[in-house]
Computed example of a mutant assay.
Amino acid sequence: MNEIHAHLTTCAAEAARVTRGVTRDRLAGPSGCPDWTVRELANHLVLYTAHGLEHRALRTELPEETVRRDFTADADWPEQYAARLDRALAAWRKPEAWEGEVDIGGSGVPATEIAAMLLAELALHGWDLARSTGQEFTVPAATGARLLDVVERYAEMYRQYEGFAEPLAAAEDADAFTRALALSGRKA
């Protein structure tokens, strides 16, 4: 199995922990992501890092009702998110999930690269949610290094789609995770 799975598992556990720390009164407040409330950020995180992660492994489309759903409307949404993350990680444990390409808007992208991009989505938006709700999001050095590699490779593409802001400077002695945050336009 690809080593990305271990990093996905680490970030999924951290994202699930963060969502459990989001109180209902915080959902309507602003997030660190421009034009998004904490609720909108949380829904984006759940949709793309749990449902999207699973559907990409299975090579199936996200149902429209899932795309439009307010996951945070359910009182137990953090537990539902954690369970969906477990399903997604189980789907990526199958060897066939790593084979071939995943169709993205009519273009085939190698499955390993899709998983790497989803790692960035999970870590960066998990960090955004943590930061927006007064929490920390931490990863081991090896996961930070892998994330930095992914962000370096895809930063310009994400900027084209307004997923990343302009890069920020990071201290010379900053760890890899902090450098990945800065490169994605996030101030640690």
Rank of each mutant, 00 (worst) to 15 (best):
L89F: 10
H44T: 05
R20I: 07
A120Q: 13
A120R: 07
W98N: 03
A28V: 12
P63A: 14
E3S: 15
T9K: 09
R56P: 06
H51C: 09
N43D: 12
R59P: 09
A83G: 09
A155K: 05
D76K: 01
A142H: 12
A169I: 09
F177D: 00
E156W: 09
A169L: 11
A57D: 06
W36N: 05
N2D: 14
T23N: 11
Q135P: 10
D128T: 04
Y161E: 10
A6L: 03
R68Y: 07
A88Y: 06
C11A: 13
R179F: 00
A75K: 10
R87D: 15
D149F: 09
A57M: 02
R153C: 10
I114H: 05
G100F: 01
L122A: 11
A115I: 08
A90T: 15
S31A: 14
R17N: 08
R20P: 02
A28G: 15
A6R: 12
A91Y: 05
D35E: 15
R179S: 04
K94N: 14
K187P: 06
D86R: 15
G21N: 04
E61S: 11
L183V: 01
V139S: 01
T9F: 03
A182I: 01
L122D: 06
T133C: 14
D175M: 02
P78L: 02
Y158T: 03
M157I: 15
I4S: 05
G105C: 08
R56I: 02
Y48K: 13
L118N: 12
T19R: 00
P167H: 00
G185C: 07
Y154S: 12
A15V: 09
D70P: 04
C33S: 12
E64S: 10
W98G: 09
N43P: 04
A91K: 12
R20G: 13
A83M: 10
E40H: 02
L124H: 06
M117I: 12
V109G: 01
E136Q: 09
E101P: 06
L168Y: 04
D103H: 05
R24I: 10
A42K: 05
Y161V: 14
R56S: 13
C11F: 04
Y161T: 13
G106T: 07
L89D: 09
E61I: 07
I4W: 03
G163N: 06
A91H: 10
P110N: 11
K94T: 13
T9S: 15
F137Y: 07
T138F: 08
A165I: 09
L122Y: 08
A42H: 01
L58Q: 10
A75V: 14
R146C: 15
G21K: 03
E121A: 13
F71Y: 13
A145Y: 03
L119Y: 07
V150K: 02
V151R: 00
A82P: 07
A174V: 04
T133P: 15
